[in-house]
Structure formats: structure tokens, C-alpha cells
Amino acid sequence: MLKYILKRIVSVIPVLLAVSILVFLMVHLMPGDPARLIAGEMATEEDVERVREKYGYDQPLYVQYFRYMSNLLQGDLGTSTRTQRPVATELATRFPNTLELALVATALASILGIAFGLISAQLRYSIWDNISMFIALIGLSIPPFYLGLMLMLIFCVNLGWLPISSDVWYIALILPVITVGARSMAVIARMTRSSMLEVLNQDYILNARAHGFSEKKVVFGCALKNSMNTIVTSMGLQFGTLLGGAVVTEKIFGWVGIGDYLVTAIKARDYQVVQSTILVTAVAFVFVNLFIDILYAFINPRIKLS
């Protein structure tokens, strides 16, 4: 397994190289002059030129790329042109927050999603099935900007049960987690349901029942276990997506994650921030996928990593 993991890690390098070139080209080919955006709308032409020279935007593109890569290889993610601070420092503040939100949201969405999916599959076509799938449908359909604002309006403004901002970490997490987790919960619930229904129709389930296994054992011991690969894949994808930041939720709740940071950087043509943040996100995403692969073998030993 170790050999497999090492191989996967090495294979990440060309992926990241490709990502770096792609992102570099994308941000540099976007219309818009970074020097002008940095200088502000009331800057004179001389001001703009001074900025262009300072950040080396007057250099050819390949020179800029090699300078970026050479700094990167020395562990320097660059300096934000917008805030004048090292990108590494800013990411060190923001990434743990994004990770925290993504982890808690995925964990809770998984627990609830699997529970709703199981209820729905097991009690197919019952009122419980309808209720579970209705909740999932709501979670899937309601946009985060609406859900977040409504939660804030109801629980913070009207009922006064929760503060909009809080010093206590788990209180601060409640509404953002619900906002970002609702969609993940819905996806996992629907995935669990369909996967369970497929497995429950298999001959070996019939066989297990014929052998007099209890329904609990059939559902949890046989059906759920065999559905887990699909469910775990779906959990991993949701988690990976959330690692890229939840822009809307971060905006609404003032959550200091990387989503809003990235969008602000794109608007300001803060090249260093855009490149480095996407690179860090790409690394995280690749490792989440690797973790999911390993998890397959952990859940179902019949799957061989090699």
C-alpha cells in the first residue's frame, strides 16, 4: 500500500505543474490590467506605470512564469499585490477555516444524508420516504445565499437565539455549516437511497434473508456495507468541493475562508494569490481523492489498491 501511496504522490507532480501553467495562463490572459486595478481608479498614468514596473508586469509572460515557479520551488508563494502580505501567511489563516467548515459540514451532512437515505430506501414509498426525499430536495434546490440569509434572519434577527458572530467556535459554526452542508446532505441522501435500493434487490440480499438473518443485519451488515463505495465517493466529492471554499457562505457570515479570498483576488487581478490559492486547493483535492482511494480498500478489503 505504501508503494501505491508514494506512486500516487509522485504522479501528483505533473498534475500540479499542468495546473500551475494553466492557471498562470488563464489569469494572465484575462482582460484587465493588474497595475491599473492596484493603483486605484483615481491614479494617474505615471502611478500606473510605477506599479507595472514594481511588480514586473512589464516583463514578458515567460519571464513572469519562471520567476513565479522559481519562487514557488523555494517555498515562496509570493506576495499579494492587494494587501502587500505574503500569500503563504494569508493562506495559513484562511485554509484551516475552510478545512474546518468543510470537515464539519461533510461529517454532519454524511450522518444525516446516510440516515435519510437509509430510511428512504428501507421504507420505500412510505410517508417517511417522501419526507426524507422532500428534505433532500429542499437541500438541493435552495441556493446557499437564500438559505444563509434566511437562517440569519430567523435565528439571529427575529428569534435572537444565535448571534451573527460569536466568540465560541461551535456557535459560530452552526449557521455556516447548515448553509453549506444542506446541499451535501441532499446529495449524499439521494446517493445512499439509490445505491441501497440497487443493493437491496441483489440475490445475495435475498439469500441472506432466506437464511434468516435479522433485518438489521441485512441492512447494516450486507446492504449498507456494499453501498458504501458509492456513498464514500459522493462524500469525498462534496468534501473536495468545499475545500475550494464556499464563496457565498463566507460572504454572508464573514467566514474567513479561501473562497471569498480567491474571488476578491480574481477581481483585483492579484495574480500571486489566484495562482497560489488554486495550487493549494488542487493539492488538497488530489490528496482527498487519494484518501478516498485508500478508504475503498479499508471499507471493502476485496478492492486491491494495486
Binding site: R94, N97, S165, S166, D167, I171, A172, P176, G254
Partner: peptide, 11 residues
């Protein structure tokens, strides 16, 4: 981690 006060949200 992070912000020292309350995770991601500012206090």
C-alpha cells in the same frame, strides 16, 4: 487553528 478566537468567523 486559524484565527485564535472562534475559528473562521470573526469575533
Amino acid at each position: 487553528g486559524g484565527t485564535g478566537n472562534n475559528g473562521g468567523q470573526t469575533n
